[in-house]
């Protein structure tokens, strides 16, 4: 209504300007007033750290699997900024109470809390929120918000996930998005996969922001999240979190994959994560969810 009124006012004003001879004072029968907008969500103040875990469990119980995707995310709702730091699943760490192993195994050994503790050891940041989902859960959540527009640097095919990705923008449903998140058929293998997982996070954010004003959209998404996520948040807290995420501006986000060196331990491929970089990036993002010095 407002837009229509403004358009009509603009057209009439234009017509008045055309028909009123120069030097004649037009009657002040209307004025144009800009429509003002305001948007805010009451959420935790300052930077909030979220650990998003993707389990490789194929059952309805994501905690029975390994942490296939590990993303540490800094959110600053007030400024609309976010930083996602990808941690390689094969990062070789001394798991508290279990000894040296890949960080991915910490999920089934001690649940999301143990993964969070290991991430805190690596980065110096203790996440306030931890969300875990499995294959089916991720697929269901993506399907609940509609197709994602995802950028890919490489072409990928995988018949198991009906995946036929070309270089550039792609539209993906839940199954395809799951395949894209899992695919290791990439030039940089694990590191490349983490970059793809971060592109999916950006695509999900883009979809949430695009559709947030559609009636019932966020409510349906929150229901799907409640159904598919392992979280100890109450439904109201989860709903509030979902509303808060829509305040993040995609143009104010940054993603980094923390580097590392390949190695072999007892015949298994592992990664020695660049802990100095991990701590540096986490410290950089801790104040304002912004990376002053890029990913270096």
């Amino acid at each position: 209504m407002s837009t229509a009124r403004r358009l009509a006012a603009a057209l009439v004003t234009g017509a008045v300007l055309l028909v009123v001879p120069s030097g004649t004072t037009a009657p002040a029968t209307m004025s144009l007033v800009a429509v003002e907008t305001a948007s805010a969500v009451d959420f935790d103040e300052g930077v909030v750290w979220v650990l998003a875990l993707g389990s490789d469990s194929r059952t309805a119980k994501p905690l029975e699997g390994n942490a296939d995707a590990i993303e540490l995310i800094a959110l600053d709702v007030a400024s609309g900024r976010a930083v996602a730091l990808g941690i390689a699943r094969d990062s070789y760490v001394d798991i508290d109470g279990h000894g040296p192993d890949k960080i991915t195994t910490a999920l089934y050994k001690g649940g999301p809390q143990l993964v969070a503790a290991e991430v805190a050891e690596l980065t110096g940041v203790t996440p306030q929120y931890v969300f875990t989902t499995g294959f089916a859960g991720f697929e269901g959540m993506v399907d609940s918000i509609g197709e994602l527009r995802v950028h890919s640097d490489v072409a990928l095919q995988d018949s198991e996930y009906q995946l036929d990705v070309h270089v550039g923008e792609n539209e993906m449903d839940g199954l395809e998005a799951t395949g894209f998140a899992r695919s290791r058929n990439l030039p940089a293998s694990d590191f490349g996969r983490q970059a793809n997982q971060q592109r999916l996070l950006e695509a999900i954010l883009d979809s949430l922001r695009t559709h947030q004003d559609e009636e019932g959209f966020l409510e349906a998404g929150a229901l799907a999240a409640l159904q598919h996520l392992d979280t100890d948040l109450s439904p109201t807290e989860l709903y509030r979190f979902a509303q808060a995420v829509t305040q993040i501006n995609l143009r104010r986000t940054a993603t980094c994959v923390i580097g590392g060196t390949d190695d072999t331990v007892d015949g298994a491929a592992v990664i020695h994560l660049d802990e100095a970089q991990a701590r540096r990036l986490a410290a950089d993002a801790a104040d304002d969810a912004r990376l002053q010095h890029g990913c270096s």
Partner: peptide, 29 residues
């Protein structure tokens, strides 16, 4: 116009988020 988002609290339902547009127009005449 727009959206007001509410949640239940100990004091009843309260607004915790808003996404609104405000348009003030002098009426005709």
């Amino acid at each position: 116009t727009g959206r007001l988002v509410l949640m239940p609290t100990d004091d009843g339902w309260r607004i915790f988020a808003y996404h609104v547009a405000r348009d003030d127009l002098p009426a005709e005449g």
